[in-house]
Nucleic acid binder design. Structure first.
Lengths: 204, 204
DNA sequence: GTCTATACCATGATAGAC
DNA sequence: GTCTATCATGGTATAGAC
């Protein structure tokens, strides 16, 4: 029992440390992006030495991959947590709002849209791709349902809708509006969600 | 007269070379972004040695700035080239289409939305900021006119509309859709323009 | 056994010699 | 104009402290 208990404690400590590292990575990724983020900074933010970090994660890439995978899991979990009776389009709205709020809190790294070194490596990562596909599947179902109900434009191919929604989560307009300093976080989120669904024209 | 003529020819040659350098920079910027772009690559693409490039441009930053300034000039020129009788909203649509087409041709660097080293430096560049302000002014006028005509949502603050439109020019959905390989350049452009103005709901 | 300090190596921006 | 050096940065590997 002593051994088991100690092992567990040690593993818990490990987990706590790794969580701290991943958290620091997420924040730095969100702030600077993959290429500009340095492992030194992450280590400093996490309060450990760079070499110690390499005991937990084998490379900068694997660090970033772990963060992205965790975020995708959270996104999927968020979708599942929504009440089933909620309209598909409102689930989509909810996901976008969730992502934007996360980002405005400085916590969501832009998905690897920008041609970074990450992109190619992530696409070679089975665990990452698995989750991407899982999320895509759920989203496509939501889109088709919403189109069938006539609340989303049926003239748009479902993947165009899904990709556009993903794109909105990393919309640079967030930064522009934040920089202008004229709007609260909530306002930014609401405007962007509105623009995403109703467009610049609005509902006429 | 000999000297003058030769000077002119030399200057022309210089200009040709600098244009080649700027063109190479634009392409590399579009492909890899500022941070991942190396001056070596630009020099190689332009067909000269790296050190020679530094005879023309004092730094990597000044290279990028020159490209961005030129692009902003082109954007403003594009707006001015549109027939005055064209509806404001159609001018906006035209600008977005122009930018997306340029990007799909591999020619438009994502504006410095991503927190890159560039961003801060560009904002310190008078020539750049001057053009940004000039473009903003024209765009705000168009937005207000379109809102007055009721073809753009009057409930949206004009700057939200302008920033959203800028954001669409660097919409990562472009890359996603291109990667999927299901759509032609033209289709991508049309879908994105449609989504930008009518939203995912479409006009109902 | 896990962290710290330091060493190593490639890359990439810039400067100077021809 | 090119070629070659310099210098800083940053990812990674090792060696020793607790």
């Amino acid at each position: 029992m002593g051994i088991l208990a100690r092992l567990t404690v040690r593993q818990q400590q490990q987990k706590v440390r790794e969580d701290a590292i991943l958290d620091a990575t997420r924040v730095m990724l969100a702030k600077k992006g993959y290429d500009l983020m340095t492992v030194d900074e992450v280590a400093a933010e996490a309060g450990i030495a760079k070499a110690s970090l390499y005991k937990h994660f084998s490379s900068k890439e694997s660090l970033a991959a772990a963060v992205m995978i965790h975020l995708l899991d959270q996104a999927i979990a968020f979708l599942e947590s929504l009440p089933p009776e909620l309209a598909p389009v409102d689930k989509m709205r909810g996901l976008l709002r969730w992502a934007l709020d996360l980002r405005l809190d400085g916590g969501l790294p832009l998905l690897p849209s920008t041609s970074s070194t990450l992109q190619s490596n992530l696409l070679a990562n089975r665990d990452y791709v698995k989750r991407i596909l899982a999320l895509n599947e759920r989203m496509l179902d939501l889109v088709k349902a919403a189109q069938a109900q006539g609340v989303l434009d049926p003239g748009l191919p479902p993947d165009v809708v899904v990709f556009s929604l993903y794109a909105r989560t990393c919309d640079p307009a967030v930064e522009y509006l934040q920089m202008s300093g004229r709007y609260t976080h909530q306002q930014v989120t609401e405007y962007l969600v509105k623009v995403a669904f109703a467009g610049l024209q609005g509902t006429r």
